[in-house]
């Protein structure tokens, strides 16, 4: 039972309540840094680190933090983790850090992270909070990566910097420019909602069949 509970918190972030496809949160980094797969991975990992770290702390101290100053406390915790991620990336992968630029410090303002602290981590035990954070962060990473892969392949003819096509491939430059982000995100959201719609329709059909059967 315990296992299932953790698994449920994890999987809901990855798919059903995916922060990008279902909740449409964190659009700013989503559109800005997904022009290549490697940038998407770096952004996703940085967000994962910040989200899991702050969820763990917020959940551990949830009985100590007075309600009146909780948002300020969450922001202090999040900002500390973001600064740690910022310096670590700068030291380990300076090239990626340069590409992501201002969007690393801007993780502080990612409403996905503050939203999880307020809605989940500050109300549930640490184990569930961490599972929820990992699920949400993986969901965010999956979303970033699916945009990054599509945009890099079409816009640059490459994947993770490896050229896929011959010289004859004319890259769709627009895909790595900002409009490409909106186009790709729109198509992916369309697909996600179509899928959800079909699934609901199917479940309704099943329910109806059961009712008429009994």
């Amino acid at each position: 039972m315990k296992k299932n509970e953790s698994y449920e918190e994890f999987i809901k972030g990855v798919w059903r309540d995916n922060p990008v496809f279902a909740q449409v949160l964190g659009m700013c980094p989503m559109l800005a840094v997904t022009n290549s797969a490697i940038n998407a991975v770096a952004m996703g990992m940085a967000t994962l680190f910040v989200l899991v770290g702050s969820s763990f702390l917020v959940s551990s101290f949830r009985n100590w933090i007075p309600k009146q100053v909780r948002i300020s406390c969450f922001i202090i915790i999040i900002a500390t983790f973001v600064t740690i991620a910022d310096y670590t990336l700068l030291a380990l992968v300076p090239k990626v850090h340069k590409e992501l630029g201002a969007f690393i410090p801007l993780i502080v303002a990612n409403c996905l992270i503050l939203g999880r602290q307020e809605a989940f981590a500050s109300r549930y035990p640490t184990r569930l909070a961490v599972m929820d954070a990992i699920g949400m962060a993986v969901g965010f990473l999956v979303a970033l990566l699916s945009l990054g892969i599509v945009r890099e392949i079409l816009g640059d003819g490459a994947l993770f910097g490896v050229k896929l096509f011959s010289e004859n491939f004319e890259p769709w430059v627009i895909m790595i420019l900002p409009p490409g982000g909106f186009l790709t995100l729109g198509v992916i959201l369309l697909f996600f909602n179509w899928f959800k719609f079909k699934k609901d329709e199917f479940l309704e059909d099943v329910a109806e069949a059961e009712r008429s059967g009994s």
């Binding site: 100590w64 933090i65 007075p66 100053v69 300020s72 406390c73 202090i76 915790i77 900002a79 500390t80």
Partner: peptide, 9 residues
Amino acid sequence: TLAIAGLIS
């Protein structure tokens, strides 16, 4: 609370 959080941060 805020002072301690700020200090640790």
